[in-house]
Amino acid sequence: MDHAFVEHGRDYSFLVEARMGKDPGRHQLQFTHVTDLVYTTAVADATWGESWGEEFVNYQSWLDAGEPEGYVWGTCWSLAWPGMSAIEPSSKAAEWSSRLGRTMYEAKIQTDRFCISLVFHSIRTRKISNETSTVSSGVTPLPSPGS
């Protein structure tokens, strides 16, 4: 739903929305003591070219333009797939652990829009709300086996 460095600039936060699992709703994942962060696009080069115009950054403008082919940035959220993974072993985390004298970890967060790799010390989580309307309107679950 959203991601950015928090106001003080040390920690990096993700706002995620899940409609399935043990605790559906919106949750904040805050990675603390971030020492290294790399952001890379996951959108293909050709799709970038198709999606360059300003009509792609506002959903209503994209609809008004006749829904042209390309990536619609104006949905204002990313599909968290393939998702989050720990990088183990991590040479970056080992280097930062040695430099700081604290245990550091590395994770990768991949979506349909971007990939973020970051080195951090810990993760804090908290539930923000029970809201699931965005992901519910944009994602259709696969049927259960045998359905």
Rank of each mutant, 00 (worst) to 15 (best):
W48Y: 09
S85D: 14
A65R: 05
S97I: 04
T40Q: 15
L118I: 00
C76R: 14
G49R: 14
A93Y: 07
T41K: 07
C115M: 10
I128E: 01
L100K: 06
H121C: 09
A94N: 03
C76F: 12
I116K: 01
V38N: 09
R10V: 04
W48D: 03
G70S: 05
I116R: 02
V72I: 11
V34I: 10
E67F: 01
A42V: 05
E95W: 13
Y71C: 03
K127A: 00
S78E: 14
A65S: 10
E17D: 08
S133Y: 06
Y59T: 02
E69Q: 14
P24S: 03
D45F: 11
S91R: 15
E67Y: 07
T35L: 15
E17S: 03
R99I: 12
S51L: 07
A18M: 14
T132C: 02
L100I: 01
R113H: 13
T35A: 10
G70L: 08
G25F: 00
H33A: 14
T103K: 11
D36P: 00
I123N: 01
W62K: 02
R124A: 07
G74F: 09
V119A: 04
T103A: 13
L118W: 06
E106L: 08
P24K: 04
E69K: 15
T125P: 00
V57Q: 13
E54Y: 07
C76V: 08
Y39I: 09
R26F: 00
D45W: 11
W62D: 06
S117L: 05
I123D: 01
T47G: 01
R10W: 05
E54L: 07
F56K: 04
S85V: 13
N130H: 09
W81V: 13
F114E: 14
E55C: 10
P89W: 10
S13V: 11
A42I: 02
K22N: 03
Q60H: 06
V72T: 12
V34G: 13
F56N: 04
H33V: 08
F31G: 06
P68N: 10
T41I: 04
V135F: 10
R10T: 08
T32M: 07
A44S: 12
D36H: 11
G66A: 03
W77I: 01
A65D: 11
E131M: 01
G74W: 13
G53N: 06
Y105M: 14
Y39W: 15
T41Y: 08
F56H: 10
M20N: 11
G66V: 00
S90M: 03
G25Y: 02
A44M: 08
W48S: 01
G101P: 03
W81G: 14
P68G: 12
R26N: 04
V16H: 03
V34C: 12
A46Y: 13
S61I: 00
T40P: 05
E131F: 08
D11R: 02
Y105I: 03
T132F: 03
A44V: 10
L37I: 13
W62P: 04
R113G: 06
N58T: 00
G53Y: 11
R19P: 05
R99C: 02
R19Q: 15
T75F: 11
